[in-house]
């Protein structure tokens, strides 16, 4: 039986969809069978980020309404040897058409077919959020290193607790290493401490992600720090003990040494 994990956040636009794709792709590269479920009804975009938009025939609501079987709605990503699939969201429907109980039974069925069911959650804490969370065994909360983003993440963490979910893990996305180094950005430990949650990973801010998004490709096959960050997260989800990357360790420089001496 597989595991269903919802990728959520408080604030929108922090990188949930990007993380869902890249963690899923990294898990698939490691041999796991993965399905990505887009629950952003009316604003579907996981298919576009994956470059599979032309392959979508049926969607999540078609499955829930019994218009097709799950297998018919699943879109296979041909780059991952049959190990990465997408269940797309409906683009023209209403979030309220789904009920939490339906999501629970869908997730159960998918867990029987895949090792990992990654659920991409819509922004906000309304119906769409509640439905996305309903079928999940655990949650990952994505935040950016900004006050408003962490504050909203804290809100979501307290809602997840009220929904009796296990304590979520945190991904800090779009960390700007130079800014952390010069003291102009909170670091990942500050955020994990304030949110009182374990860190699942730190992802640097990297234009590679935007370029890959333009092409409809995941970034996990590359050698950049961002590719490594997603692969490390996948390994941690598979229970491996992978230490967190220290992205902003001070580099040695004569200038910095002089600066420290002068106060």
């Amino acid at each position: 039986m597989g595991e269903a994990i919802v990728i959520t956040s408080g604030k929108g636009g922090v990188g949930k969809t990007t993380a869902t794709l890249n963690i899923g792709a990294a898990l698939a590269l490691k041999g796991a069978h993965v399905v990505l479920v887009d629950t952003d009804i009316g604003l579907r975009n996981l298919d576009v980020v994956m470059g599979l938009e032309e392959k979508v025939t049926y969607d999540l609501i078609d499955v829930l309404e019994g218009k097709c079987r799950i297998r018919q709605a699943l879109v296979d990503d041909p780059r991952f040897f049959g190990r990465l699939h997408l269940l797309p969201a409906a683009q023209t429907r209403d979030k309220r058409e789904i009920e939490a109980e339906q999501m629970r039974s869908l997730a159960k069925e998918l867990k029987g077919m895949f090792d990992f069911v990654l659920i991409d959650c819509p922004a906000g804490i309304e119906t769409g959020f509640v439905n996305a969370v309903a079928g999940a065994d655990s949650a990952v909360v994505v935040t950016m290193p900004e006050v408003s983003s962490v504050r909203d993440a804290d809100k979501v963490i307290s809602i997840l607790k009220a929904l009796s979910m296990p304590k979520p893990k945190i991904i800090v996305n779009r960390l700007r290493t130079k800014m952390v180094r010069r003291g102009d950005m909170m670091d990942e430990n500050d955020m994990a401490e304030m949110l009182a949650c374990e860190l699942l990973g730190i992802i640097p801010d990297d234009e590679t992600v935007i370029r890959a998004g333009n092409l409809g490709e995941p970034v996990v096959r590359g050698t950049s720090p961002v590719s490594l960050a997603y692969r490390n997260i996948a390994e941690r989800l598979q229970g491996e003990n992978v230490p967190l990357q220290v992205l902003h360790r001070e580099k040695f420089s004569i200038f910095r040494k002089l600066k420290r001496k002068l106060g």
Partner: peptide, 26 residues
């Protein structure tokens, strides 16, 4: 004051976040 000193906004962000979380949680 050091010639290299600047206002470190990361610490300000942390303090402001602490205030926000205190309000939200208490």
């Amino acid at each position: 004051m050091s010639i290299f000193q600047s206002n470190k906004t990361g610490a300000a962000a942390k303090a402001r976040l602490n205030t926000c979380l205190r309000e939200d949680r208490t």
